[in-house]
C-alpha cells in the first residue's frame, strides 16, 4: 500500500505544481489546495501505514497507528485551511481592484517571457 500511496502523492504534487505555475489565480489557489492534500498524505505514508487501531489507549490494543505524523498533519490541515482562505480573499480583492485574475496582466505588461 505504501508503494502505491507514494505514487499517489507524487501525482498530487505533480498536478499541484502544474496548476501553481499557471497564469490564472483560481488555478493557483486550487493548486495550493492539492499541494496540501499531497503533503498530508506524504507525511502519513512516510510514517508507515501499519497499525491495526487508532492511536487511542484502549484495553487489549497494542498495535497503534503512529500518532506523531497524525499530530503533525492535524496541525497542517488547520493551517492550510487558514492559508487557503487567506489567499482566496487575496485573489478576490485583487480581482475587485484590478479586474483581472491573470497574474501576467496584473504585473502590468501583457506579455509573459
Amino acid at each position: 500500500m505504501e508503494i502505491v500511496m507514494a505514487f499517489v502523492c507524487g501525482f498530487l504534487f505533480m498536478a499541484a505544481i502544474y496548476l501553481i505555475l499557471s497564469r490564472s489565480l483560481l488555478r493557483i489557489i486550487i493548486g495550493t489546495g492539492l499541494l496540501s492534500h499531497g503533503a498530508h498524505l506524504l507525511i502519513l505514508t512516510m510514517g508507515g501505514l501499519g497499525g491495526t487501531a487508532p492511536p487511542v489507549l484502549a484495553e487489549g490494543v497494542s498495535d497503534f497507528a503512529d500518532p506523531i505524523p497524525q499530530a503533525l498533519i492535524l496541525t497542517a490541515i488547520v493551517i492550510s485551511f487558514g492559508v487557503t482562505a487567506f489567499i482566496l480573499v487575496l485573489a478576490y480583492r485583487a480581482y475587485q481592484e484590478l479586474k483581472t485574475d491573470d497574474t501576467t496582466a496584473m504585473k502590468g505588461s501583457g506579455i509573459d517571457d
Partner: peptide, 9 residues
C-alpha cells in the same frame, strides 16, 4: 517534482 516526492516517499 512529482517524481521527487515519489522517490522520497
Amino acid at each position: 517534482i512529482g517524481a521527487m516526492v515519489t522517490l522520497l516517499a
